[in-house]
Design a protein around this nucleic acid. Structure first.
Length: 578
RNA sequence: CGGGACGUGGCGCAGUUUGGUAGCGCACCUGUUUUGGGAACAGGGGGUCGUUGGUUCGAAUCCAGUCGUCCCGACCA
């Protein structure tokens, strides 16, 4: 493709509303433009990268035995009522009515549609297993779209759904998708990790996320430092924290003692006021779980993990209590809650880490007062000891005990074993060998294709722009004609361009009548892996210049017999990404 | 939804405090000279100052509403 015939509107400066690097570079490189919040147009260069990602996904899905279909974007409300999600899904589901006042939504995901499709087709176990997927535009009315493509409202997603007649079969389907995903992200030359994840609103029994490691990631993952010997990695949301040995040495501790702590209502304040470390303070958080008050006890320097607590209590809604509720249940303003004397709070959950000592500082449920030497076993009545805090750096790995480290990640893929959640509510059944009707066992598997492009750029860039890995690069090579008015230069550039095109490599030929500086800057910005530069000065000396974007390695190849040298250079560039 | 910031030619910004009829850099058009890391000079085109209403002789500027965008928190590919 000649640059003069393509539409690549690069920008010298990024629009001020772009914050993260991938968003800025996508805009500057002329790959995307914003239409409205969280909704983007893909320009030619960007679309090429997007299609590369989609093609890699498609190839591996087909390889894994899945078959591509295409489902509608607009979905009828009835289906969502059947699964129960019309009520449950919330505002993220964009709803609207047609001219007959019938309710519809834009599909944020397609479990309902695919289940509806297959319940009409599948009768017998002989028709299973089956795995269908699509690469299609999704719409989720996100609370806060941000970071350009990273969290858009409209985005391209690959979603696959597996249907099995047995549990073992479903596990096999799941594992095969896990392998396919690993292959897909490997083929994209991304630095990623599969991690254990929470199954969230989609439901189901277990799931893994695929995380691209990047500083700007919105998720935090806890990974075992013994990698790759131990492969454990989990979203901190669900990373188990193992109980530690109880410390019984201080069992005969001092009697509990009230102390005045005027105006000290944060852990910080109390630590300062009493000159103690935050980890000797016990904090008591009041929450409302499906309308009932719950107290969660944690070490002062820890964070409550709402997901763990929610799963433990098995409730629909879990929220922090508001100040009035706190006052009602503790007889004190916010900041003085403690585990002793919470009469109408029936559920008191203590993080099992609190076992390590029997000497705590805690709130006294009285204004401006705390207690010292609190012994939870002696002084409080704990409903349950459990793992309810977020994992932190250096916690032991749940698999091997080695220290964990925390890393930032961008979620680009998520796989779920759904079980019979949808097949039961929507009556998708089959008849087994014994003539008995059973619900189909399902799995669902997603990849954020447009997010992959953003994540790739987050991971591969420098001060000059994008550094595309060859598998996702819109073009593999760029031929830069530094002086289009110079006949000798142009003849050579044309010839090299034709040669590379003839090899079936995608090549963008910068034939613009611009100053060299502009072309160098643009080539770096759009991140094409290999640059071939033809200019008057070097051509007179009998060579053309080359630059590998990733290593910034500059070289030259013979201008007369460039074929072999080019081929070798191209291979060298590819090997840098292996 | 709560908290914060912003809205002025395509992009980046100044001007708003203290009202007087819109400016700078980049980009664009014409010409000349240039031509190896975002050229120089000269000339030129383009803006209902997000929008609505109010105050005023006069509003980008003051007041009120409204729309939009971005950032920080609960969601998810």
């Amino acid at each position: 493709m000649r640059w003069t015939r393509s539409y690549i509107p690069t920008l010298k400066e990024a629009p001020s509303d772009a914050e993260v690097i991938s968003h800025k570079l996508l805009l500057r490189a002329g790959m995307i433009r914003r239409l409205t919040s969280g909704i983007y147009t893909w320009l030619p260069l960007g679309l090429r990268a997007l299609n590369k990602a989609a093609d890699i996904v498609r190839k591996e899905m087909d390889e894994a035995g899945a078959q591509e279909i295409l489902m509608p974007t607009v979905q009828p409300a009835d289906l969502w009522s059947e699964s129960g999600r019309w009520e449950k899904y919330g505002k993220e589901l964009l709803r609207f009515k047609d001219r007959h006042e019938r309710d519809y939504c834009l599909g944020p995901t397609h479990e309902e549609v695919i289940t509806d499709l297959l319940r009409g087709e599948i009768r017998s176990y002989r028709q299973l297993p089956i795995n269908l997927y699509q690469i299609q535009t999704k719409f989720r009315d996100e609370i806060r779209p941000r970071f350009g493509l990273m969290r858009g409202r409209e985005f391209l997603m690959k979603d696959a759904y597996s249907f099995d007649s047995t549990d073992e079969g479903a596990d096999k389907s799941y594992m095969s998708m896990r392998d396919a995903y690993t292959q897909i992200f490997t083929n994209m030359a991304l630095n990623f990790r599969p991690v254990e994840a929470d199954s969230g609103a989609i439901g189901g029994s277990f799931s893994h996320e695929f995380m691209v490691l990047a500083e700007t990631g919105e998720d935090t993952i806890a990974a075992c430092t013994a990698w790759p010997k131990c492969s454990f990695a989990a979203n901190v949301e669900r990373c188990a924290v193992l109980p530690q040995k109880a410390d019984t040495s201080s069992a005969e501790s001092l009697p509990m003692l009230e102390v005045d702590t005027p105006h000290a209502h944060t852990v910080e304040d109390i630590a300062k006021f009493l000159s103690v470390n935050k980890n000797t303070i016990l904090k008591t958080l009041l929450l409302i779980a499906d309308g009932k008050p719950v107290a969660a006890l944690l070490r002062g320097d820890r964070e409550l993990n709402m997901i763990k607590l929610k799963n433990l209590l098995d409730v629909e809604e879990l929220d922090f209590a508001n100040p009035e509720q706190v006052t009602r249940h503790t007889n004190a303003p916010v900041g003085f809650a403690g585990p002793v004397g919470l009469h109408d709070v029936k559920l008191i959950i203590a993080d099992h880490e609190l076992n390590i000592t029997n000497d705590w500082v805690a709130g006294a449920n009285k204004k401006d007062t705390h207690v010292m030497h609190l012994n939870l076993h002696r002084d409080a009545s704990i409903t349950q000891w459990a793992d309810i805090r977020n994992a932190v750096e250096n916690d032991p790995c749940p698999h091997c005990g080695t220290a964990l480290e925390l890393k930032k990640g961008i979620e680009v893929g998520h796989i779920f074993k759904l079980g019979t959640k949808y097949s039961e509510s929507m009556k998708a059944v089959f008849v087994d060998e014994n003539g008995i009707e059973n619900p189909i066992i399902m799995g669902c598997y997603g990849i954020g294709v447009s997010r992959v492009v953003a994540a790739c750029i987050e991971q591969n860039n420098d001060a000059n722009g994008i550094i595309f890995p060859p598998p996702l690069a819109p073009y593999k090579v760029t031929v830069i004609n530094l002086d289009p008015k110079n006949e000798a230069v142009t003849a050579k550039a044309d010839a090299i361009y034709a040669y590379i095109k003839g090899k079936n490599l995608e090549v963008i030929y910068d034939d613009r009548e611009e100053r060299p500086g502009i072309k160098f800057k643009d080539a770096d910005l759009i991140g094409i892996p290999l640059q071939i530069i033809i200019g008057g000065k070097s051509l007179e000396k009998g060579f053309v210049e080359t630059k590998i974007r990733k290593s910034n390695e500059k070289g030259q190849i013979n201008a007369e017999n460039y074929e072999k040298e080019f081929d070798a250079l191209y291979e060298e560039m590819l090997s840098m990404w292996k």
